[in-house]
Protein backbone atom coordinates (compact mmCIF):
# COMPACT_ATOMS: atom_id res chain seq x y z
CA UNK A 1 0.00 0.00 0.00
CA UNK A 2 2.94 2.29 0.36
CA UNK A 3 3.95 4.03 -2.81
CA UNK A 4 7.63 4.56 -3.13
CA UNK A 5 8.65 8.11 -2.49
CA UNK A 6 9.49 9.29 -6.01
CA UNK A 7 6.15 8.10 -7.37
CA UNK A 8 4.21 10.00 -4.82
CA UNK A 9 4.89 13.46 -6.11
CA UNK A 10 3.64 12.60 -9.56
CA UNK A 11 -0.07 12.50 -10.12
CA UNK A 12 -1.40 9.28 -11.57
CA UNK A 13 -2.62 9.34 -15.12
CA UNK A 14 -6.35 9.77 -15.14
CA UNK A 15 -6.98 8.39 -18.60
CA UNK A 16 -9.26 10.09 -21.07
CA UNK A 17 -12.30 10.33 -18.88
CA UNK A 18 -13.37 13.96 -18.68
CA UNK A 19 -13.50 15.05 -15.09
CA UNK A 20 -16.73 17.08 -14.95
CA UNK A 21 -15.65 18.64 -11.70
CA UNK A 22 -12.71 20.36 -13.31
CA UNK A 23 -13.78 20.70 -16.90
CA UNK A 24 -17.52 21.21 -16.31
CA UNK A 25 -17.55 24.96 -16.94
CA UNK A 26 -15.49 24.54 -20.12
CA UNK A 27 -17.86 21.85 -21.40
CA UNK A 28 -20.84 24.10 -20.67
CA UNK A 29 -19.16 26.99 -22.45
CA UNK A 30 -18.44 24.83 -25.50
CA UNK A 31 -22.05 23.64 -25.60
CA UNK A 32 -23.32 27.22 -25.40
CA UNK A 33 -21.05 28.30 -28.24
CA UNK A 34 -22.25 25.38 -30.40
CA UNK A 35 -25.85 26.28 -29.58
CA UNK A 36 -25.17 29.89 -30.51
CA UNK A 37 -23.66 28.91 -33.85
CA UNK A 38 -26.58 26.61 -34.53
CA UNK A 39 -29.21 29.27 -33.75
CA UNK A 40 -27.78 32.26 -35.57
CA UNK A 41 -24.97 32.62 -38.08
CA UNK A 42 -24.24 36.10 -36.70
CA UNK A 43 -23.28 34.60 -33.36
CA UNK A 44 -19.68 34.04 -34.38
CA UNK A 45 -19.37 37.47 -35.97
CA UNK A 46 -16.63 39.75 -34.71
CA UNK A 47 -19.12 42.39 -33.64
CA UNK A 48 -21.27 40.03 -31.64
CA UNK A 49 -18.41 38.32 -29.84
CA UNK A 50 -16.54 41.52 -28.93
CA UNK A 51 -19.83 43.03 -27.78
CA UNK A 52 -20.59 40.10 -25.46
CA UNK A 53 -17.08 39.97 -24.05
CA UNK A 54 -16.82 43.73 -23.56
CA UNK A 55 -20.12 43.79 -21.66
CA UNK A 56 -19.00 40.83 -19.58
CA UNK A 57 -15.69 42.41 -18.70
CA UNK A 58 -17.08 44.67 -15.91
CA UNK A 59 -18.67 41.79 -14.05
CA UNK A 60 -15.68 39.64 -14.95
CA UNK A 61 -13.11 41.95 -13.37
CA UNK A 62 -15.24 42.30 -10.25
CA UNK A 63 -15.79 38.53 -10.13
CA UNK A 64 -12.04 37.90 -10.20
CA UNK A 65 -11.77 39.96 -7.03
CA UNK A 66 -14.71 38.04 -5.61
CA UNK A 67 -12.90 34.79 -6.37
CA UNK A 68 -10.20 35.73 -3.86
CA UNK A 69 -12.66 36.95 -1.25
CA UNK A 70 -14.76 33.80 -1.53
CA UNK A 71 -11.77 31.45 -1.65
CA UNK A 72 -10.60 32.94 1.64
CA UNK A 73 -13.98 32.14 3.15
CA UNK A 74 -15.41 35.64 2.85
CA UNK A 75 -18.14 37.34 0.87
CA UNK A 76 -18.60 40.83 -0.51
CA UNK A 77 -22.17 41.82 -1.26
CA UNK A 78 -21.35 45.50 -1.59
CA UNK A 79 -19.55 45.44 -4.96
CA UNK A 80 -22.54 46.53 -7.07
CA UNK A 81 -23.32 49.52 -4.89
CA UNK A 82 -19.62 50.22 -4.53
CA UNK A 83 -19.37 50.39 -8.32
CA UNK A 84 -22.18 52.94 -8.39
CA UNK A 85 -20.53 55.12 -5.75
CA UNK A 86 -17.19 54.94 -7.53
CA UNK A 87 -18.82 55.90 -10.83
CA UNK A 88 -20.64 58.79 -9.14
CA UNK A 89 -17.55 60.11 -7.37
CA UNK A 90 -15.44 59.76 -10.52
CA UNK A 91 -17.95 61.78 -12.56
CA UNK A 92 -18.26 64.47 -9.90
CA UNK A 93 -14.48 64.77 -9.50
CA UNK A 94 -13.94 65.01 -13.26
CA UNK A 95 -16.67 67.61 -13.68
CA UNK A 96 -15.24 69.53 -10.75
CA UNK A 97 -11.71 69.47 -12.17
CA UNK A 98 -12.67 70.85 -15.60
CA UNK A 99 -12.40 74.53 -14.59
CA UNK A 100 -8.88 74.05 -13.21
CA UNK A 101 -7.48 71.41 -15.55
CA UNK A 102 -9.47 72.04 -18.71
CA UNK A 103 -10.87 69.39 -21.02
CA UNK A 104 -8.39 66.62 -21.76
CA UNK A 105 -6.72 63.43 -20.68
CA UNK A 106 -5.49 65.01 -17.44
CA UNK A 107 -9.02 65.15 -16.09
CA UNK A 108 -9.76 61.61 -17.21
CA UNK A 109 -6.60 60.21 -15.63
CA UNK A 110 -7.32 62.04 -12.40
CA UNK A 111 -10.83 60.56 -12.47
CA UNK A 112 -9.43 57.09 -12.99
CA UNK A 113 -7.00 57.48 -10.10
CA UNK A 114 -9.82 58.65 -7.85
CA UNK A 115 -11.94 55.68 -8.92
CA UNK A 116 -9.29 53.18 -7.95
CA UNK A 117 -8.56 55.04 -4.74
CA UNK A 118 -12.22 55.08 -3.70
CA UNK A 119 -12.47 51.36 -4.45
CA UNK A 120 -9.39 50.62 -2.39
CA UNK A 121 -10.65 52.69 0.53
CA UNK A 122 -14.04 50.99 0.41
CA UNK A 123 -12.24 47.63 0.45
CA UNK A 124 -10.16 48.70 3.44
CA UNK A 125 -13.38 49.69 5.22
CA UNK A 126 -15.10 46.38 4.54
CA UNK A 127 -11.96 44.44 5.38
CA UNK A 128 -11.23 46.22 8.65
CA UNK A 129 -14.76 45.80 9.93
CA UNK A 130 -14.63 42.09 9.10
CA UNK A 131 -11.14 41.32 10.42
CA UNK A 132 -10.50 43.78 13.24
CA UNK A 133 -14.18 44.32 14.06
CA UNK A 134 -14.89 40.56 14.00
CA UNK A 135 -18.24 41.06 12.28
CA UNK A 136 -19.40 38.51 9.76
CA UNK A 137 -18.62 39.38 6.15
CA UNK A 138 -22.23 38.87 5.11
CA UNK A 139 -23.44 41.41 7.64
CA UNK A 140 -20.73 43.99 7.05
CA UNK A 141 -21.12 43.99 3.30
CA UNK A 142 -24.91 43.85 3.49
CA UNK A 143 -24.57 47.03 5.53
CA UNK A 144 -22.12 48.76 3.22
CA UNK A 145 -24.21 47.65 0.23
CA UNK A 146 -27.06 49.74 1.60
CA UNK A 147 -24.78 52.60 2.59
CA UNK A 148 -23.10 52.82 -0.83
CA UNK A 149 -26.41 52.56 -2.67
CA UNK A 150 -28.01 55.33 -0.70
CA UNK A 151 -24.83 57.40 -0.97
CA UNK A 152 -24.94 57.41 -4.76
CA UNK A 153 -28.64 58.28 -4.71
CA UNK A 154 -27.79 61.16 -2.38
CA UNK A 155 -24.89 62.36 -4.54
CA UNK A 156 -27.09 62.25 -7.62
CA UNK A 157 -29.86 63.92 -5.68
CA UNK A 158 -32.19 61.13 -6.70
CA UNK A 159 -31.44 61.60 -10.39
CA UNK A 160 -28.51 61.00 -12.67
CA UNK A 161 -24.93 62.26 -12.47
CA UNK A 162 -23.71 63.01 -15.99
CA UNK A 163 -20.16 63.50 -17.12
CA UNK A 164 -19.46 66.73 -18.98
CA UNK A 165 -20.03 65.69 -22.59
CA UNK A 166 -16.74 67.11 -23.82
CA UNK A 167 -14.81 65.07 -21.25
CA UNK A 168 -17.00 62.10 -22.11
CA UNK A 169 -15.84 62.48 -25.69
CA UNK A 170 -12.22 62.31 -24.59
CA UNK A 171 -12.94 59.34 -22.33
CA UNK A 172 -15.15 57.46 -24.85
CA UNK A 173 -12.38 55.47 -26.58
CA UNK A 174 -11.51 53.66 -23.36
CA UNK A 175 -14.67 51.64 -23.78
CA UNK A 176 -15.29 51.82 -27.53
CA UNK A 177 -11.78 51.60 -28.98
CA UNK A 178 -9.15 48.96 -28.71
CA UNK A 179 -5.84 47.51 -29.74
CA UNK A 180 -5.67 45.53 -32.98
CA UNK A 181 -9.44 45.36 -33.03
CA UNK A 182 -9.78 44.06 -29.50
CA UNK A 183 -11.69 46.50 -27.28
CA UNK A 184 -9.80 47.81 -24.26
CA UNK A 185 -12.27 46.34 -21.71
CA UNK A 186 -11.55 42.86 -23.08
CA UNK A 187 -7.81 43.49 -22.93
CA UNK A 188 -7.99 44.70 -19.34
CA UNK A 189 -10.25 41.76 -18.41
CA UNK A 190 -7.73 39.35 -19.93
CA UNK A 191 -4.79 40.98 -18.13
CA UNK A 192 -6.61 40.95 -14.79
CA UNK A 193 -7.57 37.31 -15.36
CA UNK A 194 -4.01 36.25 -16.15
CA UNK A 195 -2.65 38.21 -13.21
CA UNK A 196 -5.34 36.78 -10.95
CA UNK A 197 -4.66 33.22 -12.02
CA UNK A 198 -0.95 33.67 -11.37
CA UNK A 199 -1.60 35.18 -7.94
CA UNK A 200 -3.99 32.39 -7.04
CA UNK A 201 -1.76 29.53 -8.20
CA UNK A 202 1.76 30.75 -7.92
CA UNK A 203 1.99 33.04 -4.90
CA UNK A 204 1.93 32.48 -1.16
CA UNK A 205 -1.01 34.89 -0.95
CA UNK A 206 -3.14 32.66 -3.17
CA UNK A 207 -2.22 29.57 -1.17
CA UNK A 208 -2.98 31.40 2.07
CA UNK A 209 -6.42 32.41 0.76
CA UNK A 210 -7.27 28.77 0.11
CA UNK A 211 -5.84 27.70 3.48
CA UNK A 212 -7.86 30.29 5.39
CA UNK A 213 -11.04 29.44 3.52
CA UNK A 214 -10.43 25.77 4.15
CA UNK A 215 -9.78 26.05 7.88
CA UNK A 216 -8.99 29.33 9.55
CA UNK A 217 -7.61 27.64 12.67
CA UNK A 218 -5.17 25.55 10.70
CA UNK A 219 -4.03 28.70 8.94
CA UNK A 220 -3.51 30.50 12.24
CA UNK A 221 -1.57 27.59 13.71
CA UNK A 222 0.51 27.53 10.53
CA UNK A 223 1.77 31.04 11.32
CA UNK A 224 -0.35 32.74 8.67
CA UNK A 225 -1.51 36.24 9.53
CA UNK A 226 -5.14 35.48 8.85
CA UNK A 227 -6.45 39.00 9.39
CA UNK A 228 -3.97 40.60 7.02
CA UNK A 229 -4.59 38.10 4.23
CA UNK A 230 -8.34 38.54 4.62
CA UNK A 231 -8.01 42.32 4.63
CA UNK A 232 -5.95 42.14 1.45
CA UNK A 233 -8.66 40.15 -0.34
CA UNK A 234 -11.20 42.89 0.37
CA UNK A 235 -8.77 45.61 -0.72
CA UNK A 236 -8.04 43.70 -3.92
CA UNK A 237 -11.78 43.38 -4.46
CA UNK A 238 -12.27 47.13 -3.97
CA UNK A 239 -9.44 48.04 -6.34
CA UNK A 240 -10.79 45.68 -9.01
CA UNK A 241 -14.26 47.22 -8.67
CA UNK A 242 -12.49 50.54 -9.30
CA UNK A 243 -10.82 49.11 -12.42
CA UNK A 244 -14.15 47.79 -13.69
CA UNK A 245 -15.84 51.15 -13.15
CA UNK A 246 -13.21 53.15 -14.98
CA UNK A 247 -13.97 51.00 -18.01
CA UNK A 248 -17.70 51.36 -17.43
CA UNK A 249 -17.98 55.13 -17.03
CA UNK A 250 -17.07 55.98 -20.65
CA UNK A 251 -19.78 53.59 -21.89
CA UNK A 252 -22.72 55.69 -20.70
CA UNK A 253 -21.00 58.72 -19.16
CA UNK A 254 -23.44 58.76 -16.27
CA UNK A 255 -24.20 57.21 -12.90
CA UNK A 256 -27.46 56.90 -11.02
CA UNK A 257 -29.04 54.91 -8.23
CA UNK A 258 -29.60 52.07 -10.70
CA UNK A 259 -25.94 51.76 -11.72
CA UNK A 260 -24.48 48.38 -10.86
CA UNK A 261 -27.69 46.95 -9.42
CA UNK A 262 -27.35 43.17 -8.88
CA UNK A 263 -23.74 43.14 -10.05
CA UNK A 264 -22.75 41.52 -6.78
CA UNK A 265 -25.02 38.57 -7.47
CA UNK A 266 -23.84 38.21 -11.06
CA UNK A 267 -20.24 38.28 -9.89
CA UNK A 268 -20.88 35.66 -7.20
CA UNK A 269 -22.79 33.55 -9.73
CA UNK A 270 -19.84 33.69 -12.13
CA UNK A 271 -17.48 32.63 -9.35
CA UNK A 272 -19.67 29.69 -8.38
CA UNK A 273 -20.29 28.51 -11.94
CA UNK A 274 -16.53 28.58 -12.39
CA UNK A 275 -16.04 25.99 -9.70
CA UNK A 276 -14.91 28.03 -6.71
CA UNK A 277 -16.58 26.73 -3.56
CA UNK A 278 -18.87 29.25 -1.89
CA UNK A 279 -17.75 28.26 1.58
CA UNK A 280 -14.14 28.83 0.68
CA UNK A 281 -11.02 26.72 0.55
CA UNK A 282 -10.80 26.26 -3.18
CA UNK A 283 -10.81 28.85 -5.93
CA UNK A 284 -9.81 29.18 -9.54
CA UNK A 285 -9.69 32.37 -11.49
CA UNK A 286 -9.91 30.85 -14.95
CA UNK A 287 -13.13 29.15 -13.87
CA UNK A 288 -14.57 32.51 -12.85
CA UNK A 289 -13.73 33.94 -16.27
CA UNK A 290 -15.53 31.04 -17.94
CA UNK A 291 -18.44 31.41 -15.53
CA UNK A 292 -18.91 35.09 -16.30
CA UNK A 293 -18.66 34.50 -20.03
CA UNK A 294 -21.27 31.75 -19.76
CA UNK A 295 -23.66 34.16 -18.05
CA UNK A 296 -23.00 36.74 -20.77
CA UNK A 297 -23.55 34.24 -23.58
CA UNK A 298 -26.90 33.09 -22.21
CA UNK A 299 -28.29 36.60 -22.53
CA UNK A 300 -26.73 37.03 -25.93
CA UNK A 301 -28.08 33.76 -27.33
CA UNK A 302 -31.57 34.51 -26.04
CA UNK A 303 -31.41 37.81 -27.90
CA UNK A 304 -30.27 36.13 -31.11
CA UNK A 305 -33.19 33.71 -31.40
CA UNK A 306 -36.91 34.12 -31.51
CA UNK A 307 -38.32 30.92 -29.98
CA UNK A 308 -37.89 31.82 -26.32
CA UNK A 309 -38.53 35.21 -24.78
CA UNK A 310 -35.32 37.02 -23.81
CA UNK A 311 -37.15 38.06 -20.66
CA UNK A 312 -36.41 34.58 -19.38
CA UNK A 313 -32.68 35.43 -19.25
CA UNK A 314 -32.59 35.44 -15.47
CA UNK A 315 -34.34 32.08 -15.28
CA UNK A 316 -31.77 30.46 -17.56
CA UNK A 317 -28.92 31.96 -15.58
CA UNK A 318 -30.48 30.62 -12.41
CA UNK A 319 -30.80 27.13 -13.86
CA UNK A 320 -27.16 27.21 -14.95
CA UNK A 321 -26.00 28.23 -11.46
CA UNK A 322 -27.90 25.39 -9.82
CA UNK A 323 -26.75 22.89 -12.44
CA UNK A 324 -23.15 23.98 -12.05
CA UNK A 325 -23.19 23.35 -8.33
CA UNK A 326 -24.94 20.00 -8.78
CA UNK A 327 -22.35 18.84 -11.29
CA UNK A 328 -19.42 20.04 -9.24
CA UNK A 329 -20.59 18.27 -6.15
CA UNK A 330 -19.28 15.21 -7.93
CA UNK A 331 -19.36 11.68 -6.69
CA UNK A 332 -18.62 11.80 -3.04
CA UNK A 333 -17.93 8.68 -1.10
Amino acid sequence: MSASAPDMAAKPARGFRIDLKTAGPLVALALLVLLGIFLNENFLSYNNLTNVLARSSFIGIIAIGATFVITAGGLDLSVGSMAAVIAGVMIMVMNWLIPTMGIGWGVVLAGMAVGILVGGVAGVGNGLMITRGRIEAFIVTLGTMGIFRSLVTFLANGGTLSLNFQVADVYRPVYYDGLLGVPYPIIVFALVAIGGEIIMRRTAFGRYCAAIGSNEQVARYSSINVDNVRLLTYILQGVLVGVAVLLYVPRLGSASSTTGVLWELEAIAGVIIGGTTLKGGYGRVWGTVVGVVILGLIGNILNLQSLISPYLNGAFQGVIIILAVLLQRGRRR
Binding site: R207, N215, V218, Y221
Partner: peptide, 18 residues
Protein backbone atom coordinates in the same frame (compact mmCIF):
# COMPACT_ATOMS: atom_id res chain seq x y z
CA UNK B 1 -8.03 17.70 12.17
CA UNK B 2 -9.18 21.03 13.55
CA UNK B 3 -5.94 22.97 13.76
CA UNK B 4 -3.18 20.97 12.16
CA UNK B 5 -4.10 19.94 8.64
CA UNK B 6 -6.25 21.17 5.77
CA UNK B 7 -8.29 18.03 5.32
CA UNK B 8 -9.59 18.88 1.85
CA UNK B 9 -6.16 19.51 0.40
CA UNK B 10 -3.38 17.25 -0.78
CA UNK B 11 -0.16 16.35 0.98
CA UNK B 12 2.02 19.00 -0.60
CA UNK B 13 0.16 22.18 0.33
CA UNK B 14 -0.25 20.82 3.84
CA UNK B 15 3.42 20.04 4.27
CA UNK B 16 4.63 23.44 3.15
CA UNK B 17 1.92 25.68 4.60
CA UNK B 18 3.96 26.62 7.65
Amino acid sequence: KGKGLLLNMGLQPNLTLL
